[in-house]
Amino acid sequence: MTQNTSYAQFENGPGLIATFHHAQKAPIILRRQPHTEKGLSSSLGDNLPEPENYGELEQLMFSCLQSGDDKSALLCIEQLSSRFGVFDAKVAGLRGLFEEATAESEPSLEECLQKYDLAISENPVNLPILKRRIALLNSLSRPMEAISNLNKLLEAVPTDAEAWCELAYLYRSQGMSPQAVYCLEEALLIVPYAWNIHALLGETLFSSALLSDLNESCQLLERSIRYFCRSVELCTDYLRGFYGLLMATSLLGEKRLQNHSKDHLSPQRSSSWTSTNFTLDELTLFARKRLDDIVRHRSSHYQLWKGDQGDLIAAKELLRGIDSS
């Protein structure tokens, strides 16, 4: 599910390299952990365990699993379960994740699925396990089953933004963009200031605009531009948002031209703001300039943005492509 990857991403940037670096710190972090436990037992109450420590352990587990250090990952889980108990829902979910990740064949994955079914029959609102089960269904390439299960889960827990985002991913992977848009809107209703979800919504609208006919795609692009705008309004140097804004505005400009030449005779159906091409051109220019600035700034501060090189390269490519055309 999203949460499994996203935790590591927020801390270290999305790069695999960063994940590896994090995983290499495993011995240090793991050695540090028991000390805090001892500190707790020696001076009762004064030295409360930091909740961040356990968050760190969880993240470390994800990094270790991603970089193949299964032993450290297992150690992380053991420390967590010695603190929270083996039957804690979240710890059970992590253990399930570990078993899935280290499973070597399809039958052992099926075995995991049966274990989850058993756990759910004991406690029908075991959210971590329910989510793991859905993720497992998806990785067993049964996406439709995963979608219907996730829908059932969301009916019971409609305030889980992560789950809505995951459903949006699943729908998008099946080419069902309108449904994905709906899900992302639901997620935004829960976290209305998440600029990444705004941008994601813009991207979803953009990609469905690519597949629809001219009139409809203009409308979709207008909507997508609004979400991209909102995203960069919330975060002033969000590279992905500016990237999307540039893509969407330039595509809309092209479509406008086509539309204009095509139905010269019939009066245009006017829509809200974008009936003026003026703003659109201005927006394109603006997005391009901002993107240029951000790319230049980040390239000169390589150390700071080491983890984000992928985004940076893509943005450079886009700028080069526009310059050459």
Binding site: V125, E155, A156, V157, P158, T159, L189, P192
Partner: peptide, 23 residues
């Protein structure tokens, strides 16, 4: 799950009321 739905469905309405204008 039904109990959880009964509780959280209300929060969904509140969320819609509070955040719809932003989204």
């Amino acid at each position: 799950l039904a109990e959880s739905r009964e509780r959280l469905a209300l929060i969904r309405g509140v969320n819609l009321r509070n955040n719809a204008h932003a989204v």
